[in-house]
Design a protein around this nucleic acid. Sequence first.
DNA 1: TGCCTTAAATGGAACGTTCCAATAAATCAA
DNA 2: TTGATTTATTGGAACGTTCCATTTAAGGCA
Lengths: 351, 351
Amino acid sequence: MASRAKATILDIAREAGVSKSTVSLVLQGSGLIRPETALKVRKAIEDVGYVYNRGAANLRKAHSNVIGMVINDLTNPFFAEMAVGMERVFQSAGIVPFIANTAESPVRQEEVLKSLMEQGVAGLVVSPARGTAPGAFRRLETAGVPVVFVMRRLPESRIPVIAPDNHRGAYLATAHLIGKGHRRLAFFGGSPDLVVYHERLGGFREACEALGIAPADRLVFEGETSRKGGIACLETALAMAEPPTAALCFNDAVAFGVLLALRKRGLEPGVDFAVVGFDDVAEAEHYMPALTSVSVNTAGLGERAAHVVLKMIQSRTTRAEDHIGAVNLVVRESCGPDRDGTRRAGMGDAA
Amino acid sequence: MASRAKATILDIAREAGVSKSTVSLVLQGSGLIRPETALKVRKAIEDVGYVYNRGAANLRKAHSNVIGMVINDLTNPFFAEMAVGMERVFQSAGIVPFIANTAESPVRQEEVLKSLMEQGVAGLVVSPARGTAPGAFRRLETAGVPVVFVMRRLPESRIPVIAPDNHRGAYLATAHLIGKGHRRLAFFGGSPDLVVYHERLGGFREACEALGIAPADRLVFEGETSRKGGIACLETALAMAEPPTAALCFNDAVAFGVLLALRKRGLEPGVDFAVVGFDDVAEAEHYMPALTSVSVNTAGLGERAAHVVLKMIQSRTTRAEDHIGAVNLVVRESCGPDRDGTRRAGMGDAA
DNA sequence: TGCCTTAAATGGAACGTTCCAATAAATCAA
DNA sequence: TTGATTTATTGGAACGTTCCATTTAAGGCA
């Protein structure tokens, strides 16, 4: 069905009674063509149902204008928000980025990167999968493809990074908890294979140190960075002889899990146990109770990353400066209503 | 920095002391090559850091093995889940799909489709943007590119559709509400520019009809298909002289909004007002209260769609059968605990 | 009129692959 | 040995663009 053997630039040249070069010029919007000729050509394009073959074009000009966004987990609203931020700027630059999901698998990531390279991408914004090997991006580097990391970084790598100030965010959040009168604190979720983990945990520790929390009163529970992980962390924490009374969570997903688990145990979040999240995803504001969280300006960082890669492509360099985004703590309900050392007794501890 | 002027098949042919044809054969895993030769070639590839140019290859063989997934809203966890389902099957077919987001904008969608065509996609799975014009996919059709719609359909189109049985889902949910003793029902959220809306609303109406709810007692409130939309619907519904006591929501996002708004008003979801969602996103199970919702097997439909497009590509056809997926109601807490006509009075109507 | 300049359009080579037809080498049958 | 067959390898044309160097057409000026 439909016109077989897809039309080429030559077909439309014949149709319009001009040369293929003229058609090419029109396609590129060159001003050298007489307007009426251009019109004639455009009409022919329409009539024939011609579709431009970017592969053939790239063969000649090696200037692909395809940009890839490699995301570690599209299911996670946090990364989805970030992706949308990036898209916004690519769109206004007239570029359609291709998104690929690695589902947190380094193997899958390798496939994805390979495919993207074969496609001839002009640049890449990557949020690397957990457990990415140090050399995973060497291919890209030697090929001279601009790459920027966003949100996550690799242990040792020269690739520019756009990320929030995790250390400071964790510090702020921890200080808030301590200010609320908590003296035995936990850090919930995450694991050391993520650089971000060390940064956030570092901020937590430094705040404890600075504000007089004894090392024995800083509890860290590794776990999945998901709701499930949060539930698990809370369970094991509360099973301790002397459980913590508050937790800074690795991210909001963990925090939501904690909130859930508290409810399930008949405990009142914010009253019986304070929790603060990290990332401030859209849902945090609408949760019950609304989650106190460290806002990192997710979409903004995405936009920034997109801008950086665009600039790198334009100036044909593979280097750029890191960017550490400002963070701030947005206080909602999950750490209790007031800050007067005497924590309210829950109004009945039944559900 | 690094090896300039990227290597081609010829460079590696020279390096390995064979002809370009041999290299090409190796690249394609042809069995015609002596194993030792193949090895030599592969080593050269590694040494030189060669990257395959798929564009050049497609020029000759027109067999792109690129598949696109065009999603209307990646921020929506529902569509993200679906996308992940599709990815799973593409991955196991050795294909890296490119995902593109249209952000529910027909204009953006057009750009995306154009770009994908230029890239020479072999096939497309599309969840069309709301308000897509009837002719938006003509280009693809005349080009003979296999396309399948997933979740959403266009008013009149020959493109195969993979979607849940919306009508039946809505019927089931409505019947459940009526079984719980509700006699004045609302349908919350959505708008008529979506075919899905008509299907779900149709199921709602049919159930009301069949189970003896008078037309005057069926209230429909259009609104955004988001949390915000749900909040708005509830507000205007409760402002009525004789408000409904239960609502079927267009999707889970709307339902979450309703739950939220109820809480904010000091009403107990499930007790003072029953709500059932649609789609059964992962979060429904973990919400407070857990949301009763129509499960559509999101990821499964995604997988199905992926399979269909794969088969279409393989058999070079542009037609396939529609597939209507089974649905079922999963009952949780948001419609109250028991079904004995006498609805429990809330235990105190304060929050 | 003839010459110069500018504007518009064009032919051809090149890009990196695939695939066909052809060759070369090795094996086999007689 | 010769011819046929099989196994490995190879050169060349083609794919649909871009871009450079040219050509052609149209004015402008003396």
